[in-house]
Structures are given as C-alpha cells and as structure tokens.
Amino acid sequence: MNYDALVEKIILLEYHQKLLLKMIGDAKQPFYTMVIEKSLREEDVVAFFNHCDQLSIDLEEQKAEGFVHFHPLFDKFKEGLHPNLRAEEVIKSCLAQQLFTPLMAELRKYMN
C-alpha cells in the first residue's frame, strides 16, 4: 500500500470516528469523548491524569493548611493542559464523568 492510499484510509477512519461519536451522542463518558474529538494520544491522557493527581494532592494540602482560595491552583491546572484543551470544557467533562471530582468542583469556581 502506498503513502497516498494510507493517508486516504486515515482520513476515512477519522471521518467514521466522528460519525460514531455522533451516533453514541449522549455518552456517559464525556471526558473520553472529548479525548477522541481532540485527537489526544494515550500519553497525553496519562500526563493529564498525573497532573490532576498532583493537583488533587496540592488541593488537600492547601485545605489542611487553611487555604480558602485556590485560584493559583486553577492557573496551574490551565498551564498543564494539552494545547488542544480548554479548561472549562475539561472541568465540565470531568465532573460529568466523575473524574477528580473534589478537584474539579473546586476549580469550577474559577471558570470565567
């Protein structure tokens, strides 16, 4: 199979993938749906989960120290996101899928 045929098959697969996402529509996994829509790699998702794990630890430590405002944590969250992602959509999809719920519930307070 030549290069042009491979590229054509990839384009077709991407189109079919988009159609499948529309077919499942009201998915119970909005974060993973967003991962597919934004064409993130597995390494990108693993890095995101590691980032959120660390931020969750930071949040608990800051709460234990008596912090009540976590805007710097929100800024740190945004800085660690993949360039294809927007903080607001990530927070909403994580909350809907119940990923990192305490962290995302706190970060939601700082969305514009």
Rank of each mutant, 00 (worst) to 15 (best):
L19H: 03
F31N: 04
N2H: 06
M1V: 13
L81A: 13
E65L: 13
Q62I: 01
K22E: 14
I11V: 12
H51C: 10
F31Y: 13
F70E: 02
A27Y: 05
M104K: 09
D44C: 05
E88W: 00
Q54G: 03
Q29G: 01
K28Y: 02
H82I: 07
K38H: 08
H51G: 12
Q29N: 10
L73K: 10
L12I: 04
N84Q: 04
N50G: 09
P102E: 02
G66F: 07
F31S: 06
L81W: 12
Y15I: 06
V68Y: 07
V90D: 03
V7Q: 12
Y32N: 14
K63T: 02
F77N: 09
A96L: 14
F74M: 12
F67V: 00
D44F: 05
I11F: 03
I57N: 04
L40G: 10
A47C: 11
F48D: 00
R41G: 01
K28N: 10
V7I: 15
E61P: 01
K18G: 01
F100C: 01
G25Q: 12
V35F: 04
L59H: 08
S56F: 08
I91R: 02
S39E: 15
F48N: 00
N50R: 15
T33W: 07
D58K: 07
L6R: 10
R41Y: 05
L103M: 04
A87I: 04
V46W: 09
A5G: 03
L21I: 07
G80W: 02
Y15W: 04
M104C: 09
A47H: 14
L73D: 10
I10Y: 06
E79F: 03
Q98T: 08
K76R: 15
L99R: 14
D4S: 13
K18S: 04
F70N: 03
A96P: 07
H16G: 09
D58C: 02
L55Y: 06
T33F: 08
L12M: 06
Y3R: 08
N2R: 08
Q29P: 00
V46L: 13
A47L: 13
A64V: 00
H16L: 15
R41E: 12
E88P: 00
G25N: 12
L6F: 08
C52L: 05
Q29S: 10
H82L: 05
